[in-house]
Structure formats: structure tokens, C-alpha cells
Design a protein around this nucleic acid. Structure first.
Ligand code: FES
Ligand code: FES
Lengths: 145, 145
DNA sequence: TTAATAAAAGACAAAAATATCTTTTATTAA
DNA sequence: TTAATAAAAGATATTTTTGTCTTTTATTAA
């Protein structure tokens, strides 16, 4: 098991890719994105439709259409994507699956797990969609399998 | 998405429960365990069969039979359970799902994620199956939903 | 206005995870 | 040795996740 669902992994990588192409000027088609992040095109299309409905990314149909990200969204945190796709159990849920994480009725891992969970939350809260654009352009970071 | 699969959550809670009952003296039946950790009995049976085959827990059939844990296994780390059930991608895999986590071709989250991942690994490596027995007996910790 | 383009939407399919049911095997106690 | 007990094993079912295919809608350029 990975930390994120496959859907969420695709979503994050795709949003990074769209951000990159947006600042490089212009819109980017689903085929281009799917190739750029090594994901199944039609599945990714569904994911992006969802993110689009939720306002995280934007799109226009027709010739020269495609996906892009509004400038303000470039500074939204990754946690917005994760929450939209995987929900918030990673941020607030009990590591051992108890109905709810609680200080008064904690599971054995509660104290240690809480710290780790908060750390994950903090990482995703303080990392923005647009912040890796230059490293991605320079090829210092990868979005491909 | 939670950190562990449901199967793994059940597995960990069940192993804690069996450890508890083992030190309290004796074997514990699947019905008792399922009730004790709030899990579907027959599904849990499958999980425990697997853990038993892998040597993490033991069992005997027949009257007064049930599950128990060999004393040496009480000091095995939780990571053994997690690895047996969910594999090791949580410990070594790329957070964004790249084929493999790499220093030379890292994903955008690599540096931060690596630390978190190592922290999870360390927690599970240094936490043993038997170490919560007294708190569980005292009711300070919970295994029930 | 028409043809081409590209995303949206809806239906469907395959695979994996989760859960249940039934039969078999091992063990114990009477 | 027999009957009762309890886990193991095997088969099946359900749900969720992941993935694909087809049709529709919006947009643009000619
Ligand atoms: S109760 Fe399990 S993490 Fe808080
Ligand atoms: S490359 Fe993604 S976590 Fe290391």
C-alpha cells in the first residue's frame, strides 16, 4: 500500500504537469498530459474532469483548448488535491482504523502516529501546486514513471 | 485513503489482541478476537490464516485451541506484520507512484516524503507486538472501533 | 455555417480488495 | 473410538478501484 491512491498519484502528477505547461504559456491536452506523466489517458480524463468540477483546474473545449490552471490556483496547497481525491482520513483518521482518532480512547499507535500524520498534513499544506515549476522545466524533477 | 489497508488494520489490531490474551495466559478463538477488535469474523479468519502460515502467530485446532503468539514473536516489530500484509511500498516506494524512488530522478515530493516515510518505517520497526500489553489490559488503549 | 477539435458525460469492463459461506482437517475430551 | 470443537481450506459474492469505450457538447477557424 502506498500513501496515496493511484487516482491521487495521477491527480497530483497531472496537476504539476498542467501547472508547468500553464506557466510555460498555454493550455495542454489530455493526451499530452497522459504521456507527460505516464498514466492511462482515459482514466486520467475522468480524474481531471473531477478536479475541474471542483475548481482546482480549468479547461476549455475545442481547438486550442485543453487544461490549464488559473494563476491564483498555482498557490493552492497540494492538500486541496489530496482532499478532493482521497478525502481527509490521511489527515485526521486513526492509523489503525478506529472509528475516530481520539485522545481519550486512543489506539496503541496514537501518539506516534499523530505526529507523523500531522507532518504529512503540514507537508501537503505548505507545498503549493506551482512551486516546482522551475525545477520541472530544468528537468531536475520527474513526473514520469 | 488511510495509511494501511483495511486488511492490515485488522491484522495489527488482531495481533495486539492475541498478544494481550497470550500473556494473560492461553489461546483465543477467532470469534473472541473478531468481537474484541470489531472486525468481520470470517474475513479476519483469512487474514490470521495468512499470518499463521507466515509464522507471525500460531494456532492449534480443536477444543481449547485457538490463536496465540510464541514468546519470541512478542518482540518482533510491527513492520513484520505490515510487510506481510501490505508489502514494503510504504517503506521504500515513491510517494507519487513513480516506478522507483530515486535520488537521481526524484519526484517533486521526494526530499520531504523520504523523511516522513523513514519516520513511519522507524516507528514500525521499533514498535513491538507485545509492547502495549499492560496498557491494553489496563484499558488505557483501545482496539475497538 | 460548417468541419474539425477537444473536453464532458455516460455506459461499460476488468481487476483488486473486502466479505461470506461451506467443507475439510486436526485436536481434545469423554 | 467417538463426538465435539475450532482452525484451515476452498469456493463464491460483493464492493471499490482502476481502466476503457462511445456519444455528446462546446469552441474555434475556415
Ligand atoms: S486513535 Fe489511532 S491514531 Fe489516534
Ligand atoms: S522519487 Fe518520489 S519519493 Fe522519492
Amino acid at each position: 500500500m502506498a500513501i496515496f491512491s493511484k487516482t491521487c498519484e495521477y491527480a497530483i502528477r497531472a496537476v504539476f504537469y498542467i501547472a508547468l505547461k500553464t506557466v510555460a504559456g498555454g493550455r495542454v491536452g489530455i493526451k499530452d498530459i497522459a504521456t507527460g506523466i505516464d498514466s492511462p489517458e482515459l482514466y486520467l480524463a475522468k480524474i481531471l474532469q473531477d478536479l475541474s468540477r471542483k475548481g482546482l483546474i480549468s479547461s476549455v473545449k475545442g481547438p486550442h483548448g485543453g487544461f490549464f490552471i488559473e494563476p491564483p490556483s498555482l498557490s493552492r496547497p497540494l492538500s486541496d488535491i489530496v482532499e478532493a481525491v482521497d478525502g481527509d482520513s490521511l489527515f485526521y483518521g486513526c492509523g489503525l482504523g478506529l472509528k475516530q482518532c481520539s485522545e481519550v480512547n486512543p489506539c496503541p499507535l496514537h501518539n506516534e502516529f499523530k505526529d507523523i500524520r500531522d507532518r504529512i498534513h503540514k507537508l501537503l499544506n505548505t507545498t503549493t501546486i506551482g512551486e516546482f515549476n522551475s525545477e520541472l522545466i530544468d528537468g531536475l524533477l520527474s513526473l514520469k514513471k
